[in-house]
Computed example of a mutant assay.
Amino acid sequence: MRVFVAGGTGVLGRRLVPRLVARGHQVTATTTSAAKLDLLERLGAEGVVMDGLDPMSVGEAVAQARPDTLVHQMTAISVTHAGKPDMKHMDRWFATTIRLRTEGTDHLLAAAEATGVRHVVAQSYGGWNGLREGGWVKTEQDPLDPYTGTAAQPGMEAIRHVEDAVVSAGGAVLRYGWFYGPDAMDDLTAPLRKRQFPVVGGGTGHCSWVHLDDATDATVLAVEQQVRGIFNIVDDDPAPASEWLPHLAACAGAKRPLRVPTWLARPLAGEVAVRLMTEGRAFSNTKARRELGWEPGHPSWRRGFEEALAGRGAGGGGRA
């Protein structure tokens, strides 16, 4: 197939493009920087500079590629685009990504309709943002938590927009868990090594993780099978912060995380971080296993963290 990857130089796009090429697909991939066109060429794609927030730029890029399938992986969460992670002010940290998930999604879908694209696959998120009611592990039938009145609300509204728009257009939405793996660990390990990433309260909030390679595999399956609907792309091991955070610290060669009461964490880290750590809901991958035939090669973050951070203890530097 001809596949158009919007966001081809992102942390997932850099894995997805060569995987699709290796499976015989003709790939056009976008970047916001002409300096990265050489990277896309090395990955096997035809690169194109595109501004995902400019409808003319998007329309021209898609029309020229004339793809069978369009994959929406546009975000701006990296330090280069958004600065250091800031859970207390997620609305500011995610400002451009929010626009890419609202305006950018609309531009891509309009271009897809105008060009006759048959299928769309889009990125969503399912790590700790399940509805904070009932059990700790949610399915695709359970709504996401809107985080009303918090700094996360605009981001959650943007996620809902992606899901509603793409599913209505007959496409597939992949709710990836919290990414880990090469190029995706520094934002987690750096504050741990400085003891700036504590367990809040009892650490009872649950989270789902997914290795970048497994997320890539699931995306390839969604593209090739032309599936529709929402799929949770997470590993087999949803777990509370009281388990995964100390284990991550140990794998990173850091001291055991401090424990901070909620009353102290709230003014320091913000309401979102407190809810994530104490009330977060994780996700089940049963549907993805059953309908996509997907099976994570890294079934648990426990072994996955160890492998991703092997040899990168307290003295390690650079990107994990």
Rank of each mutant, 00 (worst) to 15 (best):
E271P: 03
D236W: 03
A265L: 07
V223H: 12
L248P: 01
A239E: 07
P261E: 11
A288D: 13
V223F: 13
R259Q: 12
I233V: 15
C207N: 12
L276D: 07
P261N: 10
V210K: 00
D214T: 05
D214Q: 03
W244K: 05
V220L: 08
N285V: 03
P246K: 13
D217C: 04
N285K: 04
V210G: 00
A222Q: 11
P238A: 01
P246Q: 12
A269C: 04
V227P: 00
L276Q: 14
E291K: 07
K255D: 15
G205Q: 04
V272P: 04
A241E: 04
E271C: 01
W244Y: 14
A222T: 12
T216K: 01
E224A: 09
E243S: 08
I233D: 02
V227Y: 02
V227A: 02
A273E: 06
D217W: 01
E271A: 14
A239S: 15
M277S: 15
P296K: 07
P238C: 02
R290G: 03
Q226G: 08
R281Y: 00
A282K: 02
G297N: 09
L221W: 09
V223C: 14
L221M: 11
G297H: 11
L276K: 08
W294T: 08
W244M: 03
V272F: 15
V210I: 15
W209Y: 11
R228S: 13
E291A: 10
P238D: 02
P238E: 02
P240A: 05
P238R: 01
W209G: 00
G205E: 04
S242I: 01
L276H: 08
G229R: 10
K287L: 15
T216P: 03
T262R: 14
P240T: 04
S242Y: 00
T216E: 06
A254D: 10
W209R: 00
A265Y: 07
L268T: 14
P257D: 09
T278Y: 07
L212C: 09
K287Q: 14
H211D: 13
A265C: 09
A282D: 03
V210S: 01
V223M: 12
N285P: 15
A273R: 02
G253K: 12
A250I: 01
Q226K: 14
R275M: 06
L292S: 10
G293T: 09
W294L: 12
R259L: 01
K287G: 06
A215R: 06
D213H: 06
G293E: 06
A222L: 07
T204I: 00
L245D: 03
E295A: 07
A282H: 03
T262N: 08
V223W: 12
V210T: 08
G205D: 05
W209K: 00
A273D: 02
R275E: 11
I230S: 04
N285G: 05
A288W: 10
V260Y: 00
A218T: 04
G293K: 07
V227S: 01
L268D: 08
A269L: 15
A282S: 15
G270E: 12
W263R: 13
W294M: 10
A218Y: 04
R290W: 07
A218M: 03
E243A: 14
V272I: 11
E224M: 07
F231L: 09
E243Q: 13
A222S: 11
A250N: 04
G270C: 13
G270I: 14
C251W: 05
R290S: 14
G293Q: 06
V272T: 15
A265N: 09
N232K: 06
C251G: 04
D237Y: 02
